[in-house]
Amino acid sequence: MIDFELEQMMENPEWCLVLNHYRQSQLQAKKQDPEFDGWIIRQNEVEGVVPEHLPRIHGKLIAFDLLKFQISGRDSGVFYQVTRMGDKMLPKLQKMLKRHSTPEQSESDHSYAKSA
């Protein structure tokens, strides 16, 4: 993991919320269907994230190789999947974000960082 990527992720906790949302969606779908291939339809709402920020956040996560995408066709839309690097980075980021939080600061306070 490059220091710049980690620094950017730490400065933009919304990005972690989006990455975690996709990871949790993947885990839940896999639990329900062992044959699940890991691709999640594009999410237009993520708790704690301003919806207008999502397109840019998706782009940043793709640029940092934390999220990958595929276009399934005109009718199906875009699907996303957390990369191996994303799987490795997410637990570290969550731990670091918790460490940098003050007692007065809740996780939702992080959701309006510089993000987009």
Rank of each mutant, 00 (worst) to 15 (best):
P51K: 08
G59W: 02
V18C: 04
E45A: 11
T102N: 10
V18I: 10
A29D: 08
K68I: 06
H58V: 09
F64K: 11
Q8V: 09
H53F: 13
V49S: 03
V78W: 10
R74D: 11
G86P: 00
T102G: 12
I40C: 06
Q28D: 13
P91L: 03
L66A: 03
H110Q: 14
G73Q: 07
R84A: 10
L19T: 05
Y112Q: 10
V49I: 03
A29V: 01
Q24I: 08
I2H: 07
I57V: 15
Y112S: 12
P13T: 02
P103M: 04
K95R: 05
N44Q: 05
I40Y: 07
K92M: 09
D37F: 03
S111E: 12
F69M: 07
Q24W: 02
K88W: 09
R99T: 09
P51R: 05
L66Y: 10
K95L: 09
Y112R: 12
V49M: 01
S108L: 13
S115T: 11
P13W: 01
M96F: 08
Q70H: 13
M89N: 01
A113P: 00
Y80Q: 11
L6Q: 15
K31Y: 06
H100R: 15
H53T: 04
L66G: 10
F64R: 09
M1P: 06
I62A: 05
Q70I: 15
D3K: 10
V46C: 09
M1H: 03
S76D: 11
Q94H: 00
T102F: 14
F79A: 01
I41P: 10
R74K: 14
R56L: 14
V50P: 00
I62W: 02
T102W: 11
E47F: 08
Q81T: 05
F79Q: 09
V82M: 05
K88S: 13
D75S: 11
Q94E: 13
E7F: 14
L93G: 02
G77F: 06
V49F: 02
I2V: 03
G59A: 14
K114P: 01
N44I: 03
H53R: 14
L17S: 03
A113M: 08
M1W: 08
G59P: 04
M96N: 04
L97F: 03
S111H: 12
S108I: 15
M89S: 09
S76K: 13
L67I: 09
